[in-house]
């Protein structure tokens, strides 16, 4: 894609805003439309755009396989870990009321952590799927 300079420059301009928007959707999801599922997809689409325009090898340097593969599991662990933290604090699994000094703050904290876990898993899976398809070679 070295010849498509308009594409390359437009992508370079857009990618930071896509990533920033992904983070906004992630952490503002409690107040406006958004949440972990959407944020994960949007964040991953920023990296996928980079990979499409500059080649999978360049994108692999941004998102190395060793890290992204582990992040898939880390997200689910953050989610389940929030549930277990509630158990350790004396509540039930995924009971956020006991996480903070009062139940409303506990709910807010729990929802934030759970959405973070979802966002990590979704974006890592999407990036992994992209690399899996991009690295495959056509066979006849």
């Amino acid at each position: 894609m070295n010849h498509y300079s308009i594409l390359r420059i437009a992508a370079k301009l857009l990618i930071p805003y896509i990533l920033l928007y992904g983070l906004y959707v992630q952490f503002h999801g409690d107040f406006g439309p958004g949440g972990g599922f959407q944020a994960g997809v949007i964040f991953a689409s920023g990296i996928i755009l980079y990979g499409l325009v500059f080649g999978p090898e360049a994108a692999r340097r941004v998102a190395p396989a060793g890290i992204v593969d582990r992040l898939i599991a880390v997200g689910v662990l953050v989610y389940a870990g929030t549930g277990v933290a509630g158990m350790l604090k004396g509540g039930q699994f995924l009971d956020y009321n006991v996480l903070a000094h009062d139940s409303t703050h506990g709910q807010h904290l729990g929802i934030l952590l759970v959405e973070l876990g979802v966002g990590i898993t979704v974006s890592a899976v999407m990036v992994t799927i992209f690399f899996a398809f991009a690295a495959r070679e056509r066979t006849e």
Binding site: P33, V76, Q107, V114, E115, T121, V122
Partner: peptide, 27 residues
């Protein structure tokens, strides 16, 4: 819960088990 976005509140709190399962499916 007192969150403005009720969809997020249900997704992550009232239906937390469901969402945990969905995340596992994605994994």
């Amino acid at each position: 819960i007192q969150l403005p976005n009720i969809v997020t509140a249900i997704l992550a709190s009232y239906r937390g088990y469901d969402t945990l399962g969905e995340t596992t499916v994605i994994l």
